[in-house]
């Protein structure tokens, strides 16, 4: 048999697939900017403890509210702590907690959504009504309740955030599953008598994985904002741990005469959120999920 040139696309290794996706993402300006910001923040989170010029909790009353200078790049706050040090350290907790939080959200939301989409019927009805009920609860109030009952430790925050941000993923995963479920390859697997688990694992997940991952990436940025809001309200991490939400909350009263102590954490937080958003968009486009702007060729 003759081989047509166009078919000579061999099976690629996973590494090759991932690097191809990243290259496609970086080839768009928005994707490049998003990826750069995200990578910058992640790298900073890893190395900041080693490059921080000062001790983040060293209080020095004589240095209160110093304007930015060669010595203190971003100035000092109302307790005389170096704002630069606190800003570069401030993303660490938020990034870590929300990263693991979104993983949990992705896992339970995605799996439950796929399961509901597959089995349908009464189970689906009941589960979705419960999810709807949770969606109607203002998450921040519920979070405040959980945090005040169980404390603000990481072990509480990660699962709690993961739970509240997973609800939305259930719907997305279920909708994506519905698209696939009517296809004949699922019918075929059913007729052969495969178990639900096998159908989910082999037939559905490979086909809905992309849209769930993109959704998860978007949730990450929302969760980051949510987590910072908690800190801002005083229910996130506890002082003196440097955290953007906390820093903004502390310094907001001094905005009129010491703008530097509030601007730095704001720029840190919003740039990270924008970075994640742009990356998620580029990720979706690289996977071909958003076809509106792409020619079918």
């Amino acid at each position: 048999m003759k081989l047509d040139n166009i078919y000579q696309e061999e099976k690629k290794s996973n590494f090759a697939k991932v690097s191809e996706i990243i290259i496609t993402m970086a080839s768009r300006p928005s994707g490049f900017i998003g990826l750069s910001i995200l990578i910058f923040h992640v790298v900073l989170a890893f190395i900041s403890p080693y490059i921080a010029p000062y001790d983040f909790k060293a209080i020095n009353p004589t240095l209160m509210l110093q304007a930015p200078s060669a010595e203190y790049w971003f100035g000092t706050d109302d307790l005389g702590r170096d704002v630069f040090t606190r800003t570069i350290l401030g993303g660490r907790t938020a990034l870590t907690i929300t990263f693991f939080g979104s993983l949990i959200a992705l896992l339970w939301g995605g799996l439950l959504g796929i399961f509901c989409g597959l089995v349908g019927g009464k189970t689906d009805d009941v589960v979705m009504r419960i999810v709807d009920a949770f969606l109607s609860i203002p998450w921040i109030l519920a979070m405040l309740l959980i945090v005040s009952l169980l404390g603000t430790s990481t072990e509480v925050l990660i699962p709690a955030l993961g739970f509240f941000y997973g609800k939305g993923i259930v719907r997305v995963a279920r909708a994506a599953t519905h698209d696939v479920i009517a296809k004949d390859f699922i019918v075929s697997a059913r007729a052969r008598g495969h178990s639900n688990f096998s159908i989910i694992w082999n037939e559905i997940i490979p086909n809905v994985r992309d849209s769930i991952l993109v959704e998860g990436a978007m949730r990450w940025s929302w969760m980051l904002l949510g987590f910072s809001s908690l800190s801002f309200l005083g229910f996130g991490v506890s002082p003196p741990t440097p955290d953007w939400g906390l820093m903004i909350s502390n310094a907001r009263g001094l905005m009129s005469f010491a703008y530097w102590s509030v601007i730095a954490p704001i720029v840190g937080l919003s740039s990270l959120i924008i970075g994640i958003n742009l990356t998620a968009d580029a990720f979706a486009k690289a996977l071909g999920i958003d076809r509106s702007t792409k020619a079918p060729v």
């Binding site: 004949d184 390859f185 019918v187 075929s188």
Partner: peptide, 28 residues
């Protein structure tokens, strides 16, 4: 379907109209 035993399922196989839909696009 759920009450049929695996052998009953094996003896009857289906071929579908549209091979685009009956083959999982993510499987070799």
């Amino acid at each position: 379907l759920k009450e049929r035993d695996p052998n009953d399922l094996r003896i009857i196989q289906l071929i579908f109209q549209n091979p685009d839909e009956s083959l999982n696009p993510n499987h070799t």
